[in-house]
């Protein structure tokens, strides 16, 4: 368990992936623990396939809602190349959890730009602490693509000081009642995947 009293978490993905739920749950956990919380994202292009990011900051007192470059303790990414793109936001010794989802935009099909062959390997060259999961696949197996949010939160949960009871409380507050059990399952799967990644 990490006892830090403040943390910066950057969440990235591609418009349409629904990355905002993860930041809502995360902010809720921090708020219930008594921290000052700020979170920032830009709407407008959120469903149009562009890059989407959400910044979550908590601590005794938070001023700016945006994380400065190089100051993220944790990076959560819904898409592997987006994790690579956002990598320089992460502090030395930071934690990265990324889905292995591969979304190649039309612009990278024309020859001028190419999608990297193996973004996760590139990421591991720079950051030690990396959890990469087939999040979309696991979420669909569990029954709903939106579960990627809780899977990834489970995967980074060891990097934050909140216990499972606190996460459970926030999940219940932020997710429709009929989806709570599925989300708890997804959260546990994420935690296990992270534990396995550390062990290996």
């Amino acid at each position: 368990m990490n006892n830090k009293t403040s943390s910066n978490i950057l969440i990235v993905g591609v418009g349409g992936q629904g990355v905002l739920l993860a930041s809502e749950i995360l902010s809720d956990v921090a708020m219930r623990a008594g921290f000052d919380v700020k979170k920032s994202e830009v709407h407008g292009m959120s469903q149009r396939g562009g890059v989407v990011s959400s910044h979550v900051k908590y601590g005794p007192k938070v001023f700016s809602p945006i994380i400065p470059y190089g100051q993220a303790d944790i990076l959560i990414s819904f898409e592997q190349a987006e994790a690579l793109r956002a990598l320089d936001w992460v502090k030395k010794g930071g934690l990265v959890a990324t889905s292995r989802t591969r979304l190649v935009p039309p612009i990278a099909t024309g020859g001028q730009f190419t999608y990297p062959d193996d973004p996760v390997t590139e990421i591991r060259k720079k950051i030690k602490n990396v959890v990469a999961l087939d999040a979309d696949k696991i979420a669909l197996e569990l029954g709903n693509i939106r579960l990627v949010n809780t899977l990834l939160l489970g995967a980074i949960s060891s990097g934050l000081q909140f216990d499972n009871a606190a996460w459970e409380q926030s999940l219940k507050a932020r997710v429709k009642a009929k989806f709570v059990d599925l989300n708890l399952k997804a959260f546990a799967r994420g935690q296990n995947a992270a534990a396995e990644a550390v062990a290996s």
Binding site: G15, Q47, R48, G50, A81, E82, P105, P106, I107, F113
Partner: peptide
Amino acid sequence: LFPRPPILC
């Protein structure tokens, strides 16, 4: 990296 501008759905 390649850019990822918003596009028509």
